[in-house]
Nucleic acid binder design. Sequence first.
DNA 1: CTCCTTTGGTCAATCAGCTTGACCATATAG
DNA 2: CTATATGGTCAAGCTGATTGACCAAAGGAG
Lengths: 145, 145
Amino acid sequence: MELLDLPALLLGAARSLVDGIDDGVRARGFTDLRPAHGFAFARLSSGGATVVQLADHLDVTKQAASQMVEDLVSKGYVERRPHPDDARARLIVLTEKGWACTRAADEAAEEVLRPWADEIGPERVAALRADLARLATPGRLRPIW
Amino acid sequence: MELLDLPALLLGAARSLVDGIDDGVRARGFTDLRPAHGFAFARLSSGGATVVQLADHLDVTKQAASQMVEDLVSKGYVERRPHPDDARARLIVLTEKGWACTRAADEAAEEVLRPWADEIGPERVAALRADLARLATPGRLRPIW
DNA sequence: CTCCTTTGGTCAATCAGCTTGACCATATAG
DNA sequence: CTATATGGTCAAGCTGATTGACCAAAGGAG
């Protein structure tokens, strides 16, 4: 059993997926975003997050996360609100534009994955999900590009 | 069926794998390499390649590939030989050190993948391989980080 | 309550890896 | 033979990250 091509295969699949979704998002009019922003949106879409929480989720320094937030604020996707419990912190939340983009990303992901999922069938999808989860360390997601 | 977490799952698995292999390679004494170098080595290990071929494989510009080759030459992993058929071109080939590193990477990959493959069984591995291949565009591998 | 340490956040400088643009040498087509 | 295409390098610049310094508010210990 040749295992050694699995990393390349996995990477290739991940990249196709991410690129496909990114294309779909751009096609829906959000042309000033990178895939990494999508992972930030995913974190922000459940009640917002602080810069530090975002940094932790993206596995970058808080400075990098802060720069990204500044970028997203200037483009109108998120806004900084005072944190309800901590006067030092700010709660970063999606704006309406941010939500619209999130919906567009969900549509794009569905569009890319649906034909593939239908082709291989639900039980294979479930198996793949389980096997991948077992392979991944419980650690965090790093959006790499 | 919730498909939308698959990108993150895939990315997470790919990253665990790549990081695990990278750790193994470092543990074997090759501390001055990044994962991207591994993908270059994979291309070079089958008879060498020109800078342009390498650039194509890595999906970067030929300038970027050239810089990477220069880096690997200076570290002793590859060498530039005159190309047998084309006086403009140079054939980039692995040195003995480059081969040693390639073997180390294979060992590391085996070490990371074997327990997981044994756990889920060969038929699941085969299914996963097939499903991933179907998901990936025939396009090229991009080593992203 | 006051001190001291920890934590959230930003500013500034720097770095690594990649891109674009210009250029040269050789190959190849007409 | 000339003209264009291709392999490769040099140089400059950009982007997304990093490290380091710093400030303000929080939280624990006396």
